[in-house]
């Protein structure tokens, strides 16, 4: 506990210093650490080769999920690869269940497959209150078109982090990989 100066001038200088340092702490992104979550496979889904979930389902299935005891950051950062055989198109979305309330991102339809990997990322602001208890964060996948499997690989990034740059919709970024 710092000793608060008693003479008026030193006291005001001390108070200003406290205000300035607090304002810096409140504004800086350092108060939002990035936590990478470990993901396991979704409900009842077999995992091929240990790292990819395969599906031909026309309805969304939970491909990967992470659970954690409390929401420690306002935004979700997701990065993963999807393999799309020729003519196969998939659709993905992120779902957060926090304290029993469900928050769902807007879905993203992938490009039509050409026997290639695609890298998909998003930075999503679900709007769940910080400190919410028992959370389940899931990546859902389904097939929109084609005859083969959509292959959703285990996320390389499934993080709880700061809101900087995150959107509520969210914006999806999809690129050819490599």
């Amino acid at each position: 506990m710092p000793i608060i100066p008693t003479d008026a001038l030193a006291h005001d200088a001390f108070a200003e210093d406290v205000e300035r340092r607090l304002a810096w702490m409140e504004s800086t992104r350092r108060v939002w650490p990035v936590y990478n979550l470990a993901t396991g496979p979704g409900l009842g889904i077999g995992v091929a080769s240990g790292v990819a979930v395969l599906t031909t389902s026309a309805t969304f299935i939970e491909a990967w999920h992470a659970r954690f005891p409390t929401l420690i950051g306002p935004a979700i950062d997701l990065g993963f690869y999807v393999y799309l055989p020729l003519g196969v198109q998939g659709e993905i979305k992120v779902v957060l269940v926090a304290d029993g309330t469900t928050y769902e991102s807007a879905p993203h339809a992938t490009a039509v497959g050409s026997d290639a990997f695609r890298a998909i990322t998003t930075h999503w602001l679900p709007g769940a209150p910080l400190g919410s208890g028992e959370c389940r964060l899931s990546l859902y996948v389904r097939r929109l078109a084609g005859a083969d499997n959509v292959q959703a690989f285990q996320p390389v990034r499934f993080s709880v982090r700061d809101p900087e740059g995150a959107t509520t919709a969210p914006d999806w970024l999809e690129e050819a990989y490599p």
């Binding site: 108060v31 910080l130 400190g131």
Partner: peptide, 21 residues
């Protein structure tokens, strides 16, 4: 007011670290 702001900061920095097995 300072106490309240410190409490808010502490709440945001609560020690919860996901740690995989």
């Amino acid at each position: 007011s300072i106490e309240q702001r410190l409490t808010n900061l502490e709440a945001r920095e609560r020690v919860v670290v996901p740690a995989p097995l």
